[in-house]
Simulated assay, not measured.
Amino acid sequence: MILGESYSGRRVLVTGHTGFKGSWLSAWLLSLGADVCGYSQDIPTSPSLFELASLSNRLEHRIADIREIDAVRDAVMSFRPDFVFHLAAQPIVRTSYTDPLETITSNVVGTANLLEALRSVDWPVTAIIITSDKCYDNVEWVWGYRETDGLGGKDIYSGSKAAAEIVFKSYWHSFFGKPESKVRLATARAGNVIGGGDWAADRIVADCVRAWGRGERVQIRSPSATRPWQHVLEPLSGYLALGAHIARTGRADGESYNFGPRSEQNHTVVQLLGDLGRIWGFEGADQAYEITGNVPFHEAGLLKLNCDKALLELGWEANLSYEECMSMTGLWYKQVLKDGVAAGELMFDQIAEYERIAAERGRVWTQA
């Protein structure tokens, strides 16, 4: 498998490794045989997938702020990674309204700090900077956004992700896009990721599980909002495939890529809740949720990505159907919270199952 060949025995630095996506990425890298160093400010949620899966026992676990340049530089220079995946960020839209400065410094200055630290390396490194689909100037059109479309944002969170993309591009042109540079890097954009083990605030699946666990109906603000829902392993497969592609070929350096599901996987919040509720055991929607109509901050009604570039240049495409995405997500919570299955065991089992499905469907990154 391309991913196994690329990451087995390699040193991989993951910033934001204690978060939802960071935990899944760290676990996948460990299953591929990588030597992983994680760098995060804290354990961001309680409960925490990172802690439930006991990942700190299987990797180098660093607690430090991405906004501290000396700490970032020390992590890079002492660990000497072959690959870097930068996920450390303030990820919640609501928090960008209550604490805009934290959002800007974490997402923009934090990205600049990592890029600045990478300027000092004198060995080959491939770095993937993960931003968000919300980096685009969303005009609510029906077409998927392409990597060449305009950046922007009507809220601080979106603006911070667009700014991080601009910082990346300016650093690449100024320092890394030179023949003598040892660093190759690209950005990856994805959004609306769901999956087992997410307990972050203002995330629809996490909100459901918290409410249902208390015997309550979940309150939803925007029932008709449409999103291209995808399982967390989908974009992670893209990030890993992109890193492997750059390291093997030298191509895609300085580029940006969208990773998202097929267009037919766009579903409303109500549809998602109905499907998730049935897996949890509800017989009807009236047991699962209630609509509040309270929208305390701006939220996009429609946002989807065009992923043709990833398909044409990397051979990457989404692996799961909407039904498979919902099944893996809902069953994880049900089996862990209701049936007592060990979170870490189920996490690695689902990674193996995802790889098996991808191999059966001939995904490029599963090939030798």
Rank of each mutant, 00 (worst) to 15 (best):
A163M: 12
E5G: 12
G38D: 02
W365V: 05
N107M: 05
G191E: 00
V12F: 01
P228D: 14
S6G: 10
I130P: 06
G110Q: 07
T45Y: 05
G213L: 11
W24V: 06
E324K: 10
W24K: 03
S256W: 05
G33E: 04
E255P: 13
E102H: 14
E313M: 11
P44L: 04
A200V: 14
F83I: 07
V36W: 10
L55F: 12
P261F: 09
F282A: 07
S78D: 12
T249K: 05
I166K: 11
D82C: 07
A163F: 02
G22E: 05
G196K: 06
R356F: 04
F176D: 04
Y136W: 01
G281A: 04
R119I: 12
N57I: 03
G152R: 00
R356E: 15
A112Q: 06
W28C: 06
G277R: 02
A75Q: 03
A241L: 15
G362L: 00
S256M: 03
W141R: 14
S26D: 10
A190P: 00
L311E: 15
D253N: 08
E68L: 11
V76S: 06
G177L: 01
M328Q: 12
I66M: 12
E5C: 08
A285P: 13
C307V: 08
P179W: 01
Y157K: 14
Y354H: 13
Q219G: 13
T95S: 12
N192P: 00
V270Y: 02
F282R: 10
S222M: 14
E353H: 09
F348P: 04
W123P: 03
M326H: 09
A288K: 06
N138E: 03
S48L: 05
P44K: 04
H267T: 09
L302D: 15
I246W: 01
V232E: 06
D275T: 01
D198L: 08
L273P: 00
A252V: 02
E355P: 05
E60C: 09
G250N: 00
L311P: 04
S54P: 01
P91F: 03
N57A: 15
A34H: 05
T45F: 07
W212Q: 03
T111A: 13
G260Q: 07
F50W: 15
Q367M: 11
K154T: 13
E345C: 02
G330E: 01
S6W: 10
L87S: 00
D308S: 14
Q335W: 08
S46F: 11
G9P: 06
T249A: 03
T329G: 02
A300F: 10
G22N: 04
L118K: 06
R210D: 12
L59V: 02
I104G: 11
R221Q: 15
A53R: 01
D207Y: 09
L302G: 09
I92C: 14
R214W: 12
G284V: 14
H298Q: 12
V139E: 12
E290C: 10
R217H: 06
L115W: 02
D70K: 10
W172D: 08
D74S: 15
H61M: 07
G281Y: 11
A310P: 11
K309F: 03
G243P: 08
R73S: 15
S31H: 05
T15Y: 00
N266I: 10
K134W: 02
G301E: 14
H231A: 10
R248C: 07
R119F: 13
A252D: 07
E68G: 04
G315R: 10
L3P: 00
I104Y: 03
V341H: 11
